[in-house]
Each structure stands twice: as C-alpha cells, then as structure tokens.
Nucleic acid binder design. Sequence first.
DNA 1: CTACCGATTGACT
DNA 2: GTCAATCGGTAGA
Length: 210
Amino acid sequence: MPDLLRTDSLVEPPLPPDFYDRDVVQVARELLGKRLYRHSRDGVVAGRIVETEAYLATGDSACHAARGRTRKNVSMFGPPGRAYVYSIHARWCLNAVTQPRGVPSAVLIRAVQPLLGIGRMQRRRKSQRTVDLARGPSRLCEAFQIDRRLDGWDLSRGQRLWLTHDPDDPLPDHCIGNSPRIGVTSALDLCLRFYLRDNHYVSGPKRLRI
DNA sequence: CTACCGATTGACT
DNA sequence: GTCAATCGGTAGA
C-alpha cells in the first residue's frame, strides 16, 4: 500500500491554480478526497482530505475578511491556489485560497486521513492513534508541520506543501455530508461544512459525521 | 504598551 | 456533554 501510494504521488501533478479559481463552495466540495502533501526537512507526509469548510467573500460574518483586509488575512485576497495559514487559540489552521484575486474567500481544511509518514506524524503529535493525528484543523497542522511560514505559499508548485488528485476522485454526491461550520459563533444559518460520510477521520460530534 | 478575542484542543464529569 | 489553557493578532490608549 505505501509503495502504491508512493508511485501515485510521484506521477500525479499538483492541482493547478485554475482548480482554485472558482466558486469557493464548489472547491470546498471537490477538495474532499484530494491528497495533501507536505515535504519538510525530515521527509514527506500525506493524507486524504475528509473534511472542509468554505468561508465566503460576501454575507459571511464568520469569514476573517468580513471586516476588511488586515495583515493577518492578506493571503485570503488571492491569488487563488495559495495557502492561508492563521493562528487561533495558540494553534495553526490551513486554508486554500479560492476565487479570483481580490475576492477574499478560502477553504479551511479541517481533517485528513493519514496515508504516508504516519510515524513522523505520531512523533510530532505525541499521539499513537492514527485516527487522532490529523482530525481537526490544528491537529492537522501539527502533524503536517504547518505554521505561519507557509502563509501565502503557492500550492501549485508541488514543493513543501501541495495537493493532488486521488485515484478515487471524483467522489459521488451521496458520500458527501453537509452541516453548519464547527466552532464559529456567527453565521450559524450557513451550511458550509463538507465531509465524507461515516469516515473515522472526520472531526466534530458523531451527529455531524453521518 | 495593555486588553481583549478566537474557524481549538485535551482533560475531565 | 462541560471547561479552561493557550498565544498571535488586533484595537485602542
């Protein structure tokens, strides 16, 4: 299995900027099942994306750009296909920036299923349970060694941090669940969280995983 | 400079 | 389920 994965990953090119230069909700749905790769000093880790959330340019009070541009959220304004990494509660979270330049929108990557470099993730996370290594946006960043230094990074370069298609992709609609976003205190009426149904690696309470 | 706040997590009931 | 530790970013004095 690791050999198969290794072969696939080397042939598969990174998702191009065009993939991200579309409606943020569409991108959030399509990122499910894609692979996330991180190549850092001590090697490569990878996982399959199982949970995302969309943050909208307009009508979304929970979006970090809702009150305009600041030093922290500049990456959200584009260009598409860059990383937006921000800190919350003394931890980091990873987003993929979407839509044309100047439109502040992004997809939060909330959880991945670890595929490659599990031992490395266990050491970084100080946890043995594979299911807990990258279930939750900041756990994911700890396992993948992602912090502010990757804010603004070009995800289409295929270096340090990138995404690819997965052999299973695209996924049928009936596999995809939808709910309000987790942890936000406003815009609770918006159902902008997407996840793979019945997947162990999805975060949140059980009722938000089926 | 101080005073909050939060797209979280882990420990605990 | 509840709760508090955590610290970077922001706003304001």
